[in-house]
């Protein structure tokens, strides 16, 4: 009576993997140059017409991989933060990682740097913002540490946002400003294999500690005092989770730009499926996030004459869904 769907764990896992494979395959066939499933498969493994191979291997596959990676990373970071901060309204950017990454990328665009540097700046900006938040929060001694972290995150995020706005005012309105706007709304339109390669190991490196510490992160959802009384070094685990989630979020933000809502909404669907236990929530959220962003990105490149930025679609889909969650009005947000 407490859980959502009474699916056995293995069945659910297999269903999620099968759904991801099917969605990926479908995404490889869809586009201005339509392919059948056998054609797409052949092209993927280096057979069939050269043109199909080019489309699948150089254009669609990097996008599919990027969408899976970005969605999984954001949803995993969101699930971690919601459990860690004991709050279902928290998203991965609560500590300013997106605002910092946004500022970093905007500086790169403003200085007309090459793409690789813009990505590097975005990554560094995200990491620096959260590092600054943690330093400031640990200097604030006379209040609850978690509260200090969240409030400092809001402050640093606002400052980074102000700096971003200033650069938008100063930027060249014909060339740089559209690039800035597009980047801040998130897109995988120009993603290539070289963009994904550095992000893959960084995301993997961030997900490993989240997975290893999954039981302790669960216990932290009871609050610091209880977790410590149960033998968990709350401060150390929180630091590790923040560092790992920030690494993951900053890495994919550098590739995709600022994509909102995924990390906020997907963990709720995860909890509906498998309950709040973090050991199950983390992998399920990652899988759901991957599939969700793949669907959204495929929509983004097919529904209009021009590419629709990802952030717009995730908001358009996420906002009503969230209102529906609110309207269900259940305590516990399961």
């Amino acid at each position: 009576m407490s859980r959502g769907l009474p699916l056995p764990r293995l069945t659910l896992g297999l269903a999620l993997v099968a759904a991801l494979v099917a969605l990926s395959l479908a995404a490889l066939t869809i586009g201005p140059f339509p392919l059948s499933v056998p054609e797409a498969l052949a092209a993927l493994f280096g057979a069939g017409e050269p043109q199909s191979q080019l489309v699948v291997q150089n254009i669609r596959l990097p996008r599919v991989v990027a969408a899976l990676l970005v969605g999984a990373a954001l949803a995993a970071a969101g699930a971690s933060y919601q459990t860690l901060f004991r709050n279902p309204l928290v998203s991965p950017d609560i500590l300013g990682v997106s605002a910092g990454a946004g500022l970093g990328a905007v500086i790169g665009i403003f200085l007309s740097l090459p793409v690789a540097f813009i990505q590097l700046f975005a990554f560094a900006g995200g990491m620096a913002a959260v590092l600054l938040v943690m330093l400031v929060a640990s200097a604030v001694r006379n209040t609850d540490h978690v509260l200090a972290l969240v409030l400092t995150g809001v402050v640093i995020g606002a400052l980074a946002g102000a700096a971003t706005s200033l650069l938008k005012v100063l930027a060249d309105p014909y060339d740089q400003l559209p690039a800035i706007t597009f980047w801040l709304l998130g897109s995988l339109a120009s993603t290539t294999t070289t963009d994904i390669l550095p992000a893959l190991p960084a995301v993997a490196l961030g997900l490993v500690p989240l997975f290893l510490l999954r039981w302790r992160i669960n216990v932290l959802a009871l609050g610091d005092d209880e977790a410590r009384a149960l033998g968990v070094e709350a401060g150390r685990i929180r630091f590790t989770v923040i560092a790992a989630a920030t690494l993951v979020t900053a890495s994919v933000t550098a590739v995709a730009g600022v994509v909102g809502w995924v990390g906020l909404v997907i963990p709720h669907i995860g909890r509906m499926l498998v309950g709040p236990s973090f050991a199950r929530l983390l992998p399920v959220s990652a899988a759901l996030g991957a599939g969700y962003l793949l669907v959204v990105d495929t929509l983004a490149r097919t529904i209009g004459e021009v590419e629709v930025p990802l952030g717009i679609l995730t908001a358009v889909i996420g906002a009503p869904f969230f209102v529906w969650l609110l309207a269900r009005g259940r305590r516990g947000w399961s």
Partner: peptide, 13 residues
């Protein structure tokens, strides 16, 4: 340690 009864933010079993 047995704290006073409370409710965590998520519906654990």
């Amino acid at each position: 340690y047995v704290p006073q009864a409370h409710a965590p933010p998520f519906p654990y079993e």
